[in-house]
């Protein structure tokens, strides 16, 4: 079963919660860091064996100029403006390419082949019953969903059990890619106007793709009660509240986890994840 931890707003505590959840379950668990533009889950995990890494590539068009007659069919087909046809020359802008492969199929001269372009890497390791994998997008690469989808595929086939996905912030393609395979989504927010504003957008997104979800309020005793009022009105369960804690901030700065700083949160984390699993099994 896959549980994605997401948010609209950044910095609400997705990684803090993801790591704490992964470390609080006894059974075999996989933790996937899909925040590939700024992966940081691994900084909070206990001492581990060296990471095994593999590179991730996407196909992008390569034009054989000896076959190309600059007819422009590929440029007209591309919805992402990744190919420019100028009558005398055809240019490929591979960083705009979404790797759909359409240009190669549509080229009347067969002048386009797809070539692999490196976009990032995936690192993985094990700590006892915990399997970890995380993606790192290469600097300058603007398109992350293909790497995120590869991270989601990296749980070894022999493993079942719980998979926790630390998603990127926002509600655009990277976030949607990270939660797309989840059975359940935990939305982390904070009780501030920004937190509420972005939570609403995240809820709309998650409803659109029809994922069961709940809300966790981090730093719950700061701000005001408008997030609670909103969840109440919308019928969204607030599964956990995490108090504002200076200890937590200090621990975070030292690479320690919520379980180190606030061990009293462990029962709440355990019961939340057990409830989610139970809820899903009943279906």
């Amino acid at each position: 079963m896959k549980v994605a931890v997401a948010s609209g707003k950044g910095g609400t505590g997705k990684t803090t919660l993801s790591v704490a959840l992964a470390l609080s379950v006894e059974e075999p668990v996989s933790l996937l860091d899909c925040d590939v533009e700024e992966p940081n889950c691994h900084l909070f995990l206990p001492k581990h064996e060296p990471m095994q890494t593999r590179e991730v590539f996407v196909p992008v068009p390569h034009i054989d100029e000896s076959l190309c007659d600059n007819c422009g069919a590929c440029a007209r087909f591309c919805q992402f403006n990744a190919i420019a046809s100028l009558g005398v020359k055809t240019l490929v802008f591979s960083d705009l390419c979404h790797s759909c492969g359409g240009c190669a199929k549509i080229c009347p001269k067969g002048a386009i082949t797809e070539m692999d372009k490196l976009i990032g890497k995936i690192g993985s390791f094990r700590i006892g019953e915990l399997f970890f994998a995380g993606g790192t997008l290469d600097v300058g690469q603007p398109i992350s969903p293909p790497l995120i989808k590869e991270v989601l595929k990296s749980v070894p086939g022999s493993r079942d059990g719980l998979v926790i996905v630390d998603s990127p912030p926002g509600t655009s393609c990277p976030m949607v890619a990270a939660v797309s395979e989840a059975d359940f989504v935990i939305l982390v927010t904070e009780p501030t106007p920004f937190g509420l504003h972005d939570l609403k957008i995240a809820v709309e997104t998650i409803r659109e793709i029809r994922k069961p979800h709940c809300v966790v309020i981090n730093r719950c005793d700061s701000g005001d009660d408008r997030v609670e009022q909103y969840c109440d009105k919308q019928g969204i369960q607030i599964a956990l509240k995490i108090p504002d804690s200076r200890n937590m901030a200090v621990a975070y700065s030292q690479g320690k986890t919520m379980l180190d700083a606030m061990p009293e949160m462990r029962p709440g984390l355990e019961s939340m994840i057990n409830n989610v699993i139970l809820q899903q099994k009943r279906k």
Binding site: A75, F80, L91, L96
Partner: peptide
């Protein structure tokens, strides 16, 4: 356009 507006505009004036 989500992206590549400059590329498309350049094609428009080239055409």
């Amino acid at each position: 356009a989500a992206q590549g507006a400059g590329i498309q505009a350049a094609q428009n004036v080239a055409n």
